[in-house]
């Protein structure tokens, strides 16, 4: 099974072939989305969820910290974006900054409490904290609008100092989100191949050894948690803008579980690109299978179970296996010594 960390010496490259492929697909999508029976808004959703899933995988796949309450930070980001527009002023950059900072702050609070915990206890605490955020968003009606959600969030125009681009229609918003996605991918790609990122991966592989070669393990875990929450917050802000509203639903355990499923099905445990594949598969399954049958989640769930049982390395792992020709060293050796 390939792993996230068996990286070749060339890994320092700024731009890699998969990035170009993804860039080409995303940029050309508006031309063919309609032709294959899909629609522009789906493109926005997919791009936003890619940011979310890639950021989540910094924590889940790379650091090996299995958070099951990550929807909280997506939700916090969405509310922060909306509240900024309502109470501070209509500003795209201000709203996104607020989303990232609010989610980062939530990440610091939770991360400080969970970064000394391991394994299932870590997962359970993230669930408990996730539920607290979800529950609060429902109950703090005066702030969040409760179950009705925070409505009438505007889509502020893109302000580039000398140029102002309205983002009211889905096509321009799509291109904006894709641009943010590109920046997020570049940042995350640099991060996982940086000294910091390699230390995170070392901690995943062997926490005790990492401590004995001198690293403050919990600080790195906390940092990974906060960074990952910030990416979720960014995605949440964009999502609030796309939906023009923010709801508690994204913070539920159900939704937090879905992002785990997407990342795993795509192969986030073995590849940087796993989350991207997983997000595409989920949304296409939702829309294509969902158009055919109301029970598409049943089929998606069954596929997920089969994946966990037989191919835990996910879609990326399967592609890796198909692409790689058998190596000479991998062929079974003749059983010459067995008689001895």
């Amino acid at each position: 099974m390939p792993t996230l960390s068996d990286i070749s010496p060339r890994s320092a490259a700024w731009v890699t072939p998969p990035m170009l492929v993804l860039g080409f697909v995303m940029l050309s999508a508006p031309l063919w989305l309609g032709a294959v029976g899909l629609y522009q808004y789906l493109g926005i959703e997919i791009a936003i969820w890619m940011i979310y899933a890639l950021g989540f995988n910094l924590l889940f796949g790379y650091t090996g910290l299995h958070s099951f309450g990550h929807g909280a930070y997506l939700g916090v980001g969405g509310y922060a974006f909306g509240l900024f527009q309502h109470h501070v002023g209509s500003s795209l950059w201000g709203g996104l900054a607020a989303a990232i900072l609010a989610a980062g702050l939530a990440g610091v609070l939770v991360g400080a409490a969970v970064s000394h915990r391991r394994g299932i206890y870590f997962a359970l605490l993230t669930i408990a904290f996730g539920q607290v955020f979800w529950f609060s968003s429902i109950k703090l009606h005066w702030l969040t609008g409760g179950e009705d959600g925070l409505l009438n969030i505007p889509r502020p125009p893109l302000d580039l100092v000398f140029l102002e681009v309205p983002l009211g229609d889905n096509l321009s918003l799509y291109y904006f989100v894709v641009a943010v996605l590109a920046l997020a991918i570049l940042a995350l790609w640099r991060m996982v191949n940086s000294p910091f990122g390699r230390i995170l991966q070392a901690i995943r592989q062997n926490e005790m050894r990492a401590a004995f070669v001198g690293y403050e393990v919990w600080r790195f875990k906390l940092m990974a948690f906060v960074l990952s929450a910030m990416f979720a917050g960014l995605a949440g802000g964009l999502f609030a803008m796309a939906q023009e509203s923010a709801y508690p639903d994204v913070m539920s355990l159900h939704q937090s579980g879905l992002i785990v499923m997407m990342v795993l099905v795509g192969g986030g445990l073995v590849s940087f690109w796993g989350p991207v594949l997983g997000v595409v598969l989920y949304f296409v399954a939702r829309d294509v299978l969902g158009a055919l049958t109301e029970t598409w989640l049943l089929w998606y769930g069954l596929m997920f179970m089969a994946m966990v049982m037989f191919r835990p390395e996910g879609l990326a792992g399967v592609l890796h296996r198909l692409r790689r020709r058998p190596e000479p060293g991998a062929t079974p050796r003749p059983a010459a010594s067995e008689g001895a």
Partner: peptide
Amino acid sequence: KAPLYGLLLTFGAALVIEE
């Protein structure tokens, strides 16, 4: 395998049973 996989599998099963 790691306990994570049991957790994930039963999460999938929860989804399937609910559906």
